[in-house]
Design a binder for these strands. Structure first.
Length: 608
RNA sequence: GGGGGUGUAGCUCAGUGGUUAGAGCGCCGGCCUGUCACGCCGGAGGUCGCGGGUUCAAGUCCCGUCAUCCUCGCCA
């Protein structure tokens, strides 16, 4: 089927094109039929161009009709110029047109970006091929493509090789649940889709490739979240003969270059980034209550216990006697909060396991508000737990927190983990309330020196805090036999705006140490043999020191677009339960396929 | 697996236990020669997610269920 092909893109014509005869291809974005006059905004991926048909043209054109239109670029009268469109100074006077394909009535108002933001997502995903036509969606895909292109260019220039690794591979049951693929040749055996290319990239280092990267699809069969999908994309990197500093330096330089180029090329309303902040895991938890801090603002956590050693307030007293922690946050201007707003903060703390949230306000000393009191040093405190605190304790807490009149102080008293989780969330909410989580800022940082293992209370064993191939810091190796919880690892995260963007480590490259770590984390010698024989053996053939990192491509695009939903940065995302409404996947398969695979369905377990 | 929100026209949403369930946009028909959120007139369009129950009467109240969004657990 032949058709008149475009000679110019819709977004290009300007006054300087006046008089030219051109052809455009695209879709009817908006039709305005005035009877004798017919205007159509024709859209392609570059933009919109208004076309005007000859007087009294009758044409069956509605939204999203696919068109080829030939005509003359004509300047508009001054009174008809549309300053809101880049092509608004001109229009195309139609001499010939062809309907390439008629469009059915759309399931949603595609041309109205504002309305589209509220349209039911499942509907948008079912008709994603239409949704993708929206200029804003196109921009998101274009940004993503440019980001990947920038990353490739940077790493290619640094002599990295892009290498593909298998998608159907071996299940290693540690970590996330695997997606399984039945093996037809031997029923009962399965491939798994990779949770990451971790072992392959290490084997590439053993193979002497030295510098590897991949834009790698990863698969994890776990519960979804706004920022998680069953399949997602990582920038996966591995290098040989390097130290942690080499990898952090590479990531920092690459990210600064790629992100700043994207900000410039796409005119993103984001401040250019420079160097990355750096803090240890312990510092990050102490100051931010999280290993993925939002570094766009301060308001760090302070240790309130220092001021409360002799407190008579029973809740605090009991906490300290149990060897637990009392930590606090300052909410600048928080004295103005209503009872209801403070209750919201309490509920937030409770939803992360805290038994409560203790608060009191510091107000202007001359404001003799009901329920307030003036301390000996001239501070005026009000409400919450203030009546349980001595003047000296108030003074000390105010000094520790740097609070001023008008501020609210919040405290969580509990074990280390609960105070971290609760205060981290409260800090983020304070930051949001005060407008400190500025969408025009990207605050990248490295969190380093993670613990090698964490105690798993349920399973009564040590679990790797990163993965089993992570190298302990050489200085801490003696602790393997005495105090594994104290071992720090050559392990690092790169964080941005409260998200974990990526993580990596220096790997173990000696088989004896790898076996020892497996034993520590409860992988028996038999399991090591069955699941990891290949990598342990590989390390016996002169494996080089190596390490790497993996960062989330989807999350980077989310950060650049200030988008909280990962589905918006993927062309064909799945719904929360892993369902794909467009393809209607997953689906049943033919009886013949079951048979070939040697599979049968188990009876469903009875509902309890 | 747990908690919370949502589900009414193609879309976005109103709807106090009581008449024939409404609005805006979209769609269809008519009119309209400078629109760009075109305008004006008319019209069609409903399994109130689904199944039970309470009631003289249920979109509305109760129970169950499904879908979807957010979230806790989970995510080496």
């Amino acid at each position: 089927m032949s058709f008149q092909q475009r000679t110019i893109n819709c977004g290009e014509p300007r006054a300087s094109h006046a008089g030219q005869t051109v052809t455009i291809n695209g879709w009817a974005h908006k039709v305005r039929d005035l009877g004798g006059l017919l205007f159509v905004d024709v859209r392609d991926r570059t933009g919109l161009l208004q076309v005007i048909f000859p007087e009294n043209t009758k044409a069956e054109i509605r939204s999203e009709t696919c068109l080829s239109i030939t005509g003359t670029i004509a300047p508009r009268d001054a009174s008809n110029v549309n300053p809101n469109q880049p092509t608004g100074e001109v229009e195309l006077r139609v001499t010939d047109f062809e309907i390439l394909n008629q469009a059915a009535v759309l399931p949603f108002p595609l041309s109205d970006e504002k309305s589209m933001e509220r349209v039911n997502e499942e509907l948008r995903m079912k008709y994603r091929y239409v949704d993708l036509r929206r200029p804003s969606v196109y921009q998101r895909m274009a940004l993503r493509a440019a980001a990947v292109k920038g990353i490739r260019a940077y790493l290619d220039n640094e002599t990295f090789l892009e290498i593909e690794t298998p998608i159907i591979t071996k299940s290693t049951p540690e970590g996330a649940r695997d997606y399984l693929v039945p093996y037809r040749i031997e029923p009962g055996k399965f491939y798994a889709l990779p949770q990451s290319p971790q072992q392959y990239k290490q084997l590439l280092m053993v193979g002497g490739l030295e510098r590897y990267y991949q834009i790698a699809k990863c698969f994890r069969d776990e519960s979804q979240r706004a920022d998680r999908q069953p399949e997602f994309t990582q920038l996966d990197i591995e290098m040989s003969f390097i130290t942690q500093e080499d990898i952090l330096g590479l990531i920092e330089r690459m990210t600064v270059k790629v992100v700043n180029d994207l900000i410039a090329d796409f005119a993103l309303d984001i401040e250019p980034i420079s160097s990355f902040e750096r803090l240890t895991y312990d510092e990050s938890l102490a100051l931010y209550g999280s290993d993925k801090p939002d570094l766009r603002f301060g308001l760090t956590i302070f240790n309130a216990a220092e001021a409360l050693a002799n407190t008579e307030f029973s809740v605090f007293k009991n906490t300290l006697e149990a060897g637990n922690f009392i930590r606090g946050l300052r909410y600048p201007g928080g004295a103005e909060l209503s009872r209801k707003q403070i209750t919201e903060f309490e509920d937030l703390a409770k939803s992360f396991g805290a038994k409560g949230l203790a608060t009191f306000s510091l107000i202007n000393p001359s404001e003799e508000a009901e329920g307030s009191r003036l301390t000996a040093s001239g501070l005026r405190v009000k409400g919450g737990i203030s009546k349980f605190l001595s003047d000296a304790e108030v003074d000390a807490l105010v000094a520790l927190s740097g609070a001023e009149a008008g501020d609210l102080l919040c405290f969580v008293a509990d074990n280390w983990a609960v105070t971290n989780d609760g205060l981290c969330r409260i800090r983020l909410k304070i930051g949001s309330d005060l407008g400190l989580r500025d969408p025009r800022k990207l605050a990248f940082g490295f969190v380093v020196d993670f613990p090698l293992v964490e105690w798993n209370e349920d399973e009564q064993r040590w679990d790797p805090s990163h993965h089993p191939f992570t190298s302990p810091k050489s200085a801490d190796i003696p602790l393997l036999d005495t105090d594994p919880g104290k071992i720090r690892a050559d392990c690092y995260d790169v964080v941005c705006n409260g998200y974990e963007w990526g993580s990596g480590s220096i790997r173990i490259h000696r088989p004896d140490l790898q076996a020892k770590i497996f034993t520590l984390i409860g992988v028996t010698p038999e399991q090591q043999e069955e699941r990891f024989a290949h990598i342990l053996e590989a390390f016996t053939y002169g494996a080089p020191p190596h390490g790497g990192i993996a960062t989330g491509i989807d999350r980077l695009i989310m950060l650049l677009l200030n988008e909280e939903n990962i589905r918006e940065v993927m062309a064909f995302p799945k719904m929360g339960n892993g369902y794909d409404p467009l393809m209607d996947a997953p689906s049943t398969v033919d009886e013949k396929q079951w048979e070939e695979m040697g599979l049968m369905l188990r009876p469903a377990p009875p509902k309890s």
